[in-house]
Amino acid sequence: MAFEIGIYSFGELTPDPVTGEVRTPQTRLREFIEQSEVADQAGLDVFALGEHHRADFAVSAVPVVLAAMATRTKNIKLSSAVTVLSSEDPVRVHQQFSTLDLISDGRAEIIAGRGSFTESFPLFGYDLDLYSELFAEKLDLLLAIREQNPITWSGRLRAPLFDADISPRPLQDKLPLWVAVGGTTASAVRAGTLGLPLALAILGGAVNRYAPLVQLYRDSARRAGHDVSALPVSINSPGFVAPTSKAARELSYNYFNRGMLENFHQRGKGFHTPRPAYEAQATLGGGLFVGSPQEIIDKILYQHELFGHQRLLIQLGYGGVPQKDMLKAIELLGTEVAPVVRREIAAREAAQSNAKVTR
């Protein structure tokens, strides 16, 4: 597949660090629809939204928002980031994203994960002590639904299905399904063993320490008999792009820091990010994609050498960067970054392919 670049958001409702204003959920959702239009026109490949169930986030019904985007876009893929499958019903997940697929003419995707935010478990009546078991069983059911209809299935934690008709079916032969991994080896092994694409979240730290995890994923897939070359890897990281390095950092830092303080407190208080640490993470070997278009290009190509991945999704403007700056960033990413990256990676892959032929 050609290298893909996209953006994602969790829909956080963060107080503006300058004005103190908090956007309403209605405003935030309308902003996303406008962002998806600009991203589509700029040539980006994916727009993804994360699911949360708290008052400081605007998006709890991801397929509904993506369906609204589908009516205003033509080419961009529309995905969750992530669907918290452990506290969802796989039947409804498949129905909702199949409906999105029909509305969007075959552009729906699912990124499924266990969820780092846990408010959905008590909300929908699930036991957090079964955090991992719920995900494993529900992923099994979702995969079974993708493969056949009607379906007969039984598990331990959900009522069985007997010759059940799961409709509608998607326009695509199968809904693309990625497994989200936050750095745990067991999750990477599971994705590889099942032969599912890997969506790896890198939220900070030195990126080279994640290379063994990607290799473990591919080794697990190979041992399970899957064609590793057919299994894409996505790197998902926060970031922001502006015409200059200074502008990118100045625009985004206060919003990012406020977002980490205000919206990342599900397991206690939020996290303060000192400015020097933010700057360090924006360097070539750090986990944040913050900088000028050329810096973002250089960083993508550097990471491609580490991971050999096929997709990058940037959590653009985390903390609620103002809409006018977001739209400019989306345009830069689509018109100045993406074409160069696609061209350079295609040239690399062609050279590698030619080298193999001449051996």
Rank of each mutant, 00 (worst) to 15 (best):
T73S: 11
T283P: 07
A355M: 09
E147T: 08
T27R: 14
P15Y: 11
T185L: 07
Y210P: 12
L198R: 01
V228N: 08
A199E: 00
H304F: 11
G182I: 02
K299G: 10
I76F: 03
E34S: 14
I7A: 13
L177M: 04
M260Y: 06
L301D: 09
L213M: 05
G20F: 06
V214Y: 06
D89I: 05
G125E: 11
A68G: 13
D40N: 07
A211H: 09
Q215N: 15
V341N: 01
T283L: 12
L139R: 07
A61C: 06
Q41N: 13
D105V: 02
G11S: 03
V233R: 07
S98P: 03
R343I: 00
L157F: 12
I7Y: 03
N149Y: 04
A201E: 00
D127F: 09
Q172C: 12
E295P: 07
E37S: 08
E88C: 06
E31I: 12
P197L: 05
P197C: 09
A206I: 06
S229E: 14
S87A: 14
A55W: 06
I330V: 14
V46Y: 11
I33C: 13
L175H: 04
R92E: 12
A347I: 03
N354H: 15
Y302Q: 02
L284H: 10
D227N: 15
I235V: 15
V340I: 08
A242Q: 15
